[in-house]
Design a protein around this nucleic acid. Structure first.
Length: 229
DNA sequence: CCATTAACGACTA
DNA sequence: TAGTCGTTAATGG
């Protein structure tokens, strides 16, 4: 199993005083749900840090379809090196009201200069992100849509600390439509719908109400992931 | 197994 | 009201 160490805050481990100092050079910006905070048509900063809320990173393929590359939550970061390669059009949109802090390269250099150990953490984050991408690539290439969905759920549950849980059942922290799930697994919603219903029948997935988050049964999910379907 | 196309009722901005 | 969402079904690769 891959460890997602990287998902810890870049600044985790710093004292309150040190965090206070950082606040001076990392202005906080409150953004309502649905705000595009970065796009190929905007001049983007080198580093965005999610203080609260969640953000979806996606690109538009040549035939106009959205491909979601990642979903990030509180404490996660994205930007030039972690997910924006120069010249590659990527979008970042808030999935809920979020507080995002932005750093330009000057500020980032300053922070690294003041706290060199942050550079190491930064490398860990970038490395783990690469690992994650490679894992997903494997499923995209050789796995069924079913497996891609299972992998995605597992990834999300791993990446986001569960705020609460009901025995073996863990809620997914992000509200997602079938459309978005399809976009994240290189599929379409007509394919995703029956698979989700089947996962529910198998007791792997559960959904309360309409506009409510999914719950997953971690052990069953992981068992299903190692099967050959 | 899965994408595409079409279509429909329900819901929502 | 127009657009989005979940769902089903037919078809073809």
């Amino acid at each position: 199993m891959v460890t997602y160490l990287s998902r810890v805050d870049l600044f985790k481990g710093l004292s309150e005083d040190e965090l206070q100092q950082l606040n001076h050079i990392t202005p906080l910006e409150a953004r309502p749900r649905g705000t595009v905070i970065a796009s190929p048509y905007m001049e983007h900063k080198v580093l965005y840090i999610i203080k609260s809320g969640s953000v979806r990173l996606y690109k538009i393929t040549e035939d106009g379809k959205e491909l979601t590359l990642d979903i990030l939550g509180t404490g996660h970061l994205f930007g030039e090196i972690t997910s924006f390669r120069s010249g590659v059009p990527l979008f970042a949109v808030t999935m809920e009201d979020s507080v995002i802090c932005e750093m330009d390269s000057g500020q980032f250099r300053k922070v690294i200069a003041e706290k060199p150990e942050l550079a190491l953490k930064y490398i860990e984050i970038v490395t783990a992100r690469l690992q994650e991408t490679e894992d997903m690539l494997e499923y995209m290439a050789y796995g069924s849509v079913r497996k891609r969905l299972l992998f995605l759920f597992n990834k999300l549950v791993t990446k986001f600390p569960a705020p609460r849980s009901d025995g073996e059942w863990i809620p997914l922290p992000i509200e997602m439509t079938h459309q978005e799930l399809a976009s994240m697994t290189g599929s379409i919603r007509e394919t995703v719908t029956p698979i989700l219903n089947q996962l529910a029948d198998e007791g792997i997935l559960r959904k309360e109400g309409n506009r409510k988050p999914y719950w997953i049964q971690r052990s069953r999910l992981q068992a299903a992931l190692s099967e050959s379907k």
